[in-house]
């Protein structure tokens, strides 16, 4: 059981409680969503199939995409160079749809750690990592990541050496950051595929480190 919620009868396959959805009292905002969707379909703006296809595409994105990019960068120095120079083009080269946004990869090294946040809202490299976790969108994270990032990292279980430089990157709507974590030691003989399994979502946000082999 990945999380210890009290109501174990109502956990989804991912171990999270279901949010009130189809069976709760209809809310004002849900009513608005349905109305907007139906109006757009009636006016010929969109088809129900297009809307479902967009949801499917979103559901298909996961941190595995980002992990594949990181693992490639760890094993292919020329690709890593291209990734650091132009993250969008490098990700597209691997077949990921990045859209019009600028993707900036920031590299963790032996003396520098990077952390990403969107203080305005929720800008996130969703094309490579899927939808942002809830905590990324909370005012607590967005406020404190720039005010006391080391304390925030401690809450995620990451204790940085005092002499390590910590850079916090504030995302914008058209500029998204992704952290290129440092390759763990003892992974010299692993393939890119096995390396990708060590790359966690949080390690690409900077709130975590890659798993040890």
């Amino acid at each position: 059981m990945p999380h210890d919620h009290h109501d174990h009868d109502h956990l989804s396959p991912s171990g999270h409680p279901y949010r009130k959805d189809n069976d709760g009292q209809l809310t004002y905002w849900q009513t608005m969503e349905i109305a907007i969707r139906e109006l757009m379909v009636e006016k010929g703006e969109l088809t129900p199939a297009q809307i479902q296809a967009q949801i499917d595409a979103m559901d298909a994105r996961s941190p595995a995409n980002g992990a594949a990019v990181v693992a490639r960068a760890w094993t292919d120095p020329e690709f890593k160079q291209r990734l650091l120079e132009n993250g969008s083009d490098a990700a597209r080269e691997m077949g990921f749809d990045i859209g019009p946004m600028h993707l900036v990869a920031v590299e963790n090294t032996s003396d520098t750690h990077n952390l990403i946040v969107c203080t305005l809202c929720s800008c996130y490299p969703r094309n490579l990592l899927g939808l942002p976790p809830d905590w990324y969108k909370t005012r607590e994270y967005r406020s404190r990541a720039v005010r006391e990032p080391r304390a925030v990292l401690r809450e995620f279980g990451v204790e940085l050496p005092a002499d390590m430089t910590l850079r916090v990157h504030d995302s914008t709507a058209d500029m998204r950051y992704i952290v290129l974590p440092a390759r763990p030691e003892g992974t010299e003989n692993l393939t890119a595929e096995d390396l990708a399994k060590l790359v966690t979502r949080d390690s690409m946000i900077g709130t975590g480190l890659p798993k040890a082999p």
Binding site: P17, R144, R147, E155
Partner: peptide, 19 residues
Amino acid sequence: MGGDAAGPVPMDGHDFAIW
């Protein structure tokens, strides 16, 4: 918002509802 004081980061997650 950025730089304001705030409490611990809530770690609870949820699956997105279809709406």
